[in-house]
């Protein structure tokens, strides 16, 4: 087995950062996220925390992303540049849950009709160095959502061995290329992989999507949503929530159109120019979020839009808990 010694991890990231944008789990002050590796002061590589607060989705869909630039003068207008952010990127240390989220985003952006070219440009040259997850946290339920946390489907899989560093396992040709670049610092060594701890939280979602199809008007949504205050924290920390808004920014004649994350929790999200809003109230917006995650996405793409990372449970200021919601949805009786 190849091993990247603990004291060489920084060096390895620096080598990779020489050829690609490398995103690694870093703690920066009060937040942690998959932040671009610059080996800068104040950033702390976080391999010893369970996961980062902010998900890695911004690597393929930045919170604010320029799409094109234009000039509008009098009656004339023209697009002057389409901004597509191509180029090699590497995500380092992502876990099976976040990786599965990325696959869900692929379904949304690259299948069923159109391909989203902005997404595709960021996605196509992306290499994934994923981390096998041996110690799930108390809010984790990724296995229930079908995640293989020990064998993530990535270009390279790493196993964190503590003081010994990282066991390094290339899986794909892309992964072998990356491995070749680290030839000088990887060592061959027999190591024992960590013992995997069991996941404490389990929830059986078999048949839930089908059941929900008959629950749109069920009164339980009133009760479930009562605690929610309709902020967008859960949608922004969710690695699979991908809704976006398209906005324009201009100064004088020149401007650019950009897209930015949006949230189904906001009233403005579905507010139509003529005044009608199909999701006017809290309950409707709340229901939309959970049905999208647990039913609609499933119907459309055959996958869950929740991967059990637990971030929304951890971050919600009012203790809305998707596990509790799933369990209550499973419990309620639906009249046939």
């Amino acid at each position: 087995m190849k091993v990247l010694p603990a004291d060489k991890i920084r060096e390895a990231l620096n080598i990779l950062a020489g050829e690609a944008e490398v995103y690694a789990p870093l703690v920066r002050g009060d937040v942690s996220g998959y932040i671009k590796w610059t080996d800068g002061p104040g950033d702390e590589l976080a391999l010893d925390i369970l996961n980062t607060y902010m998900p890695p989705k911004h690597i393929v869909m930045p919170q604010t992303e320029n799409m094109y630039k234009f000039i509008a003068t009098g009656k004339d207008a023209q697009v002057t540049e389409i901004v597509t952010a191509e180029g090699p990127r590497i995500i380092f240390g992502i876990r099976g849950c976040d990786l599965q989220a990325l696959h869900a985003l692929d379904l949304a952006f690259l299948t069923r009709g159109y391909e989203d070219e902005f997404y595709k440009a960021r996605r196509q040259d992306l290499a994934v160095i994923a981390r096998a997850c041996y110690q799930p946290g108390p809010a984790c339920f990724c296995e229930s959502m079908g995640v293989d946390r020990l064998n993530p489907e990535a270009d390279v899989v790493i196993h964190v061995l503590g003081e010994q560093g990282l066991a390094w396992e290339p899986k794909t040709p892309k992964g072998k290329d990356i491995t070749a670049k680290l030839q000088g610092i990887l060592v061959d060594k027999e190591v024992a992989l960590p013992q995997a701890a069991d996941m404490k939280v389990k929830v059986d979602i078999t048949g839930l999507s089908e059941k929900l199809a008959g629950m749109f008007e069920h009164p339980v949504w009133d009760e479930l949503s009562s605690r929610c205050m309709n902020c967008g924290v859960c949608t922004y920390v969710c690695p699979t929530c991908y809704c976006f808004d398209i906005q324009v920014h201009n100064r004088g004649e020149a401007g650019n159109r950009f897209r930015c994350w949006d949230s189904c929790m906001y009233k403005e999200y579905t507010q139509m120019a003529g005044g009608h809003n199909p999701r006017e109230f809290k309950k409707e917006r709340f229901r939309q979020r959970f049905l999208h995650k647990l039913q609609y996405f499933n119907e459309r793409y055959g996958a869950n839009l929740c991967i059990g990372c637990g971030r929304c449970i951890i971050m919600c200021p009012n203790e809305v808990n998707i596990l509790e919601i799933i369990n209550k949805l499973k419990e309620v009786q639906v009249d046939a």
């Binding site: 942690s32 010893d48 925390i49 996961n51 607060y53 946290g137 108390p138 449970i313 951890i314 203790e319």
Partner: peptide, 14 residues
Amino acid sequence: DPNEFIRAASGLSK
């Protein structure tokens, strides 16, 4: 603050 406790227990924060 329950959130401080949840975050500490979650393993996301030290």
